[in-house]
């Protein structure tokens, strides 16, 4: 049955799947409201929307830091509602996370910060000794591996945090406003680093307010507003979600239909 086979292939390629997901905090704030979303393997997705629209919540749901109130999430082939709490760490080994505030350990050097991520998941020493220098070279910090975080610029610190998130070669990289503390040029550099990582086949989801980057990259854009998905475009721009609701007139169905899945870059 060819139809069945392609359905199976689709399921395999699907990295992240939200089925009618709702998240209500403490019975009050409806942070995510009935969101249905599919992200395929190897995609680069910008998550945009005004402050409080639920971007960070979406990312925290994917890493099981928060539980859905309603609906279903699949990440890397795992049904998160069926994931027992002791399996959660193994899910997280498939997901790298980068944050606006870097979350680097101040008392460890660049090398130690990156090595720490492998150490604490029990990787053997010889793996650590080869992987860490390789990833530091990828992010362009091989000659600064002995520095401490406070001896680095913000952009360099964020690259260390990307190195830490990617050193275990996760399937997915989640970045929550990674350029929020960086100047425009450094933001460009960091985004192109994420782009390079994406080209190795890693699925990247980046929540951002950075209009210039979204507009320049021309990648898939998923826009949220008050926790609802209001726009989903394959080669989108930072749209008018901050304006009236009519700005989202190009509905998700229309946008998705007009673009081929996983558009290849020119």
């Amino acid at each position: 049955m060819p139809a069945g086979a392609s359905w199976l292939l689709n399921l395999k390629a699907r990295m992240i799947r939200f089925d009618n997901v709702t998240k209500i905090y403490k019975g009050e704030t409806r942070a995510v409201n009935a969101v249905t979303l599919n992200i395929e393997k190897g995609e680069f997705v910008f998550l945009v929307g005004p402050s409080g629209s639920g971007k960070s919540t979406m990312l925290r749901l994917m890493t099981c830091e928060e539980k859905v109130t309603d609906g279903n999430i699949h990440v890397a082939g795992k049904d998160l509602s069926k994931l027992t709490s002791w399996r959660v760490p193994y899910l997280r080994r498939n997901i790298g996370s980068v944050f606006q505030d870097f979350k680097l350990l101040p008392n460890k050097t660049v090398y130690q910060n990156v090595a720490f991520a492998l150490e604490v998941i029990g990787r053997p020493e010889n793996v650590i000794r080869t992987q860490v220098p390789a990833i530091l070279e990828l992010v362009g910090l091989e000659d600064k591996h002995r520095r401490f975080p406070d001896e680095l610029s913000g952009g360099e610190q964020q690259r260390v945090s990307v190195a830490r998130a990617f050193v275990n070669r996760p399937l997915i990289l989640l970045a929550d406003e990674p350029t929020g503390n960086l100047d425009p040029d450094t933001s460009e550099e960091l985004t192109s680093l994420l782009d390079r990582i994406n080209r190795t086949g890693t699925t990247v989801v980046m929540a951002t307010h950075d209009q210039a980057i979204v507009n320049r990259m021309r990648r898939r854009v998923v826009a949220l507003r008050h926790g609802e998905l209001v726009r989903d475009e394959q080669r989108g721009a930072y749209g008018g979600e901050t304006g009236p609701a009519e700005a989202a007139a190009t509905g998700p169905a229309e946008a998705a239909a007009s673009q081929p899945a996983d558009g290849d870059n020119p």
């Binding site: 709490s85 760490p89 991520a117």
Partner: peptide
């Protein structure tokens, strides 16, 4: 607490932490 936060982030098991 910072180390613990990072450990959870990168997928260290509870028993390891």
């Amino acid at each position: 607490r910072r180390e613990i936060e990072v450990m959870k982030l990168v997928g260290a098991t509870n028993s390891f932490i």
